[in-house]
Nucleic acid binder design. Structure first.
Lengths: 190, 190, 190, 190
DNA sequence: AATGAATGAGTCTTCATTCAT
DNA sequence: AATGAATGAAGACTCATTCAT
């Protein structure tokens, strides 16, 4: 795969993401993606097997981006609260700065189009957080809560914040911190 | 509108909800909805203007169901924590007992198909909760947090719980209570 | 058939004429005719066997109106030129004062929807003109032209005038007379 | 556009013309046009945006054919009467030899499907005749008649002739000449 | 006579995918 | 690798007509 085709492949993925986010999957035909990406329809089929494959690839790749943020912010073992906050802020920043990717995830995560395989592949990107929470519980610093529940509650609280930010415009650092404190009070032992 | 057509109209809405939940909008043709509902395609168009209209109507009606639950659990002013828990459990129970409706909401809430008008109409169903939180803050019993943020965080925590329940099977009352306590710690002043 | 149903029947015919003229046959559904006529769809089918029947009935009835004008202006045998002019002006006036009927005829006369039977029935309405021309030729006052040709040429010249009037607004009596003289020169021996 | 697609495009136009002429627009579905043209339905939409676009394109192209005939017979400035007759005969011949095209025009010219744009585009094809008549009037050889009126009267007389020919079978040169003389007497000063 | 809910074949159009170039 | 014409199944929606009330 040479440089030019790399470019085309990426162009296709990028424009597909944008179009699907804006119009919905039902209203994002391959022909339109081709036009936006500046390639022929046939070219898309040189790089991808089907429309569903494109969608799944985009989905997983965005999840991976978030996974990278998590990894980055958990690699140096530091104070638990600091880590909690830096991971949370990292995810928050990623979504707020990549609203198209965020919106894509929202529209697709509950769709039957995303395969079981894709979902499974995405799970591993969250592993570092679960590890971190596990440590917190074992160290007696976190409340004794079901691990999966704790992970989902805290993650979804970040999503709530992102949602508010995207709908209502920029959030002040105070508001963001309020939300993170909300979560922290929920998991940390007094 | 007589009894029989009521039945047909409801049948259409019910089967459309089920099909869309299972197959996704793209894979839920009107012809299929008609078959499942036991009516002719034309009959659907006798009762609804378009596919989008059906989807929006279903969306709003489910939100209204949740609104009714909220209303039911906020009408008797009682202890704030009791109210918080009964509202939360009410919503939780509704979604867990109506997984199809829950899934429908998930798939559609971020879709461009749902109109601004529908979204606006749904907002009012949440008003009682916001009122309750407002009271809590003013009484000095809740932390001084942005009202919208507080509402979304607590609501989404219930959603998280529902998600876990639907994915992982029945949740023990302890787990449910853990999650509600997580939220309560997040909003209540110590 | 009582007075009320007469009214409804006529209402249906009137609104069908208008709608078809404005929208074309393809875009004039029975349901729309029913609404415009203020009746139920089923009511239309009490009065007419089918859509085609309505169209044919309207077509023939308009042709009959023109036939009545012809009859009216040929019943008193007078000077040939005067008769020619009064018949021509009569037809011209009818169309200009009934532009919807005129337009209906235009749109339908070449359509396969109009049956052979309808066409044949309409022919008789023109008989008086042909008789008049026959007389003119036999009297040696008109050029010796094929009778049918003479009839069509003169009639179509009136149509030309109507067309010009409807497209370009009111025509001065001078212009109208110019056209009638054009025809007259075409048929009268010098 | 290569040779093969040209062929397909033309095939579609040709078969659409024939079918619409025979069956009327309402009874000429795209599926049928596709079958007759020996292409897939989708292929039609590869070449045309909509059914209406096809119809308008056919309409204008036929008018253009007539325009070419007019142009051909007016380019050599000769005797006015000779020109009048050659133009008239040219148009007459075109229609008689292309009865499908003639019938198409008849069915469509008063239809709301033909756009204003199409009508305007067609006007220019008649310009040479109007110029010729203008010359005749200015040279004092033609009666002083409204130019548009003169154009329409003479043109419609040709149409009358065509109509008679198509309905009644072949017309003798004498009959044709009778009609042209009818028109000539109408416009020429004695 | 009048109604209008119901029907379902049929309409125009779309679009994922293929394939010859 | 890239193209884009071609395909045809399938989609949303229409509408003439029927029929129980």
């Amino acid at each position: 795969m040479n440089v030019q085709s790399m470019t085309k492949r990426d162009q296709i993925l990028k424009e597909a993401t944008k179009l699907i986010t804006e119009e919905g999957i039902c209203d994002s035909p391959m022909s339109q993606i081709a036009i936006k990406a500046g390639v022929a329809v046939g070219t898309i089929y040189h790089h991808f097997k089907s429309k569903d494959e494109i969608i799944n690839e985009i989905y997983v790749s965005i999840r991976k981006n978030v996974g990278d943020v998590i990894l980055e912010n958990t690699k140096n073992k530091v104070d638990l609260k600091k880590e909690f906050k830096s991971v949370s802020l990292g995810i928050y920043d990623y979504y707020v700065n990549n609203p198209i990717e965020y919106s894509f995830l929202n529209q697709l995560e509950h769709s039957p189009i995303i395969t079981k395989k894709s979902h499974v592949e995405c799970e591993k990107y969250f592993a570092p957080i679960f590890q971190s929470y596990q440590n917190g519980i074992e160290a007696g610093l976190f409340v004794d809560m079901d691990l999966m529940l704790m992970g989902m509650l805290t993650y979804n609280n970040i999503i709530t914040l992102v949602e508010l930010s995207i709908k209502g415009g920029h959030l002040s650092p105070q508001i963001v911190d309020q939300a993170l404190e909300f979560s922290w009070r929920g998991i940390a032992k007094r």
